[in-house]
Structure formats: structure tokens, C-alpha cells
Amino acid sequence: MRPERESRPDGDHHGGHRSPELEELLSSVARGDRTAFERVYALVAARVYGLVLRVVRDRAHSEEVTQEVLVEVWRSAARYDPERGSALAWVMTIAHRRAIDRVRSAQASTDRENRAARLDVRRPFDEVAESVQGRLESERLRRCLEGLTSLQRESVTFAYYGGYSYREVAELLTVPLPTVKTRMRDGLIRLRDCLGVER
């Protein structure tokens, strides 16, 4: 009965990860429907802003990046392809990449302050756990992150929330490059299985 691309039964009743609504809205947005875009905004803005803020850390910059991301969603809605993944993952991927671009360009312009702020991300996992307390979705993520080895967890969270490249992570954790690559991959795989992410 379930549409083929619907979420798993044990999955997404609270998070709407596979949100058919969002996918439909995006196809309306692709035709220039501003009302549909307002609903998209309502569904994704807090997630986009929260992620960007976590990576970029500066409030004013995060607001700008969030604006860029949402405008990009409007601009390229027609390019969203459901076969490639959920609509929300598409939006979050744009958000993460924009946030990373911002962090890396700040780095390139030798913005030392910003660099120092990023290096302060000693315990991204704890911070996440703290800031997302009480949310079911976050509880599950927290539990799943706890199931990783510490090297897997640090590799994955430093990269994702800290915005570090795998080379930087290797340097920070003083482990060889191939090890970091491997830990990022098997860490994410374990996380995927624990979260019950649809494949």
C-alpha cells in the first residue's frame, strides 16, 4: 500500500525525514509558486539555520548563509531529483556545503579569529547532545552516536559539525589519513544502520 518511497514504518513519524509533502512542495516551488515556498520555509528554515549555525558559529554569518541556502532552494528547486534522495536531505546537503564554503573561505582569507573559533570545537558531540536535549530525534541520534567507537564518533562529528576536512581531522586527532577515511565511512555506516535510514 505504502508508496515505494515512503519512510520505513519504524522511522519518521516525528521527524518527517522522508516527507512526501516537502517533495510535492518543491515541485510547486520549481514552477515559481511562492506560497509553496513559504511552506517549504516553515518546514526547513530551523533545520537549515541550526546546522549552519553549528558549523559557521557566528550568528550574523549564519543568518546570511541561511538566506543564501533558502534562496538556492528556490532557485534550483527544479533540479531536485527524488531518485537521488529525500527532499530534506537535498536541502540539508545544500546547507552543509554552503556552511563549509563559508568556513573555508574565511580560512582562506586568513581570518585567524574564525579559525581559532573553529578550533574551539573540542567536543562537538557533547555540544550537540546539549543543545538538542529533549528532542526525540536528537535523542535517537545521541544514542546512535554513543554506539560508535570514539575515533569513529570524533571523525564524523569533527567533519560534519566542525566543518573540518578529513586531512584536518587526521591532524587534529593525530591519526593517519587512511584511518580517518575509513573511520568516517564505517562510522557513518554504523550510524545509518542505527538510525534506520532508508537505503
Binding site: 546546522l51 543543545s131 545509518r192
Partner: peptide, 28 residues
């Protein structure tokens, strides 16, 4: 990659924070 990207996106959603209300006007 599809599964792992989806997983990373879940990590992103767990960090949700409401943006300031004026941001919507700017975006619109």
C-alpha cells in the same frame, strides 16, 4: 553515498534552531 548523505542530513536536522523572524522577509 545516498544512504550516507541521508545519514549526514539527519545529523544536521538534530541541530535545529529557529532563525530570527526577519530572515523570512529577507528571503521572500
Amino acid at each position: 553515498i545516498r544512504g550516507l548523505t541521508e545519514t549526514a542530513a539527519r545529523m544536521g536536522q538534530a541541530a535545529a534552531v529557529e532563525p530570527p523572524a526577519w530572515l523570512k522577509d529577507r528571503v521572500m
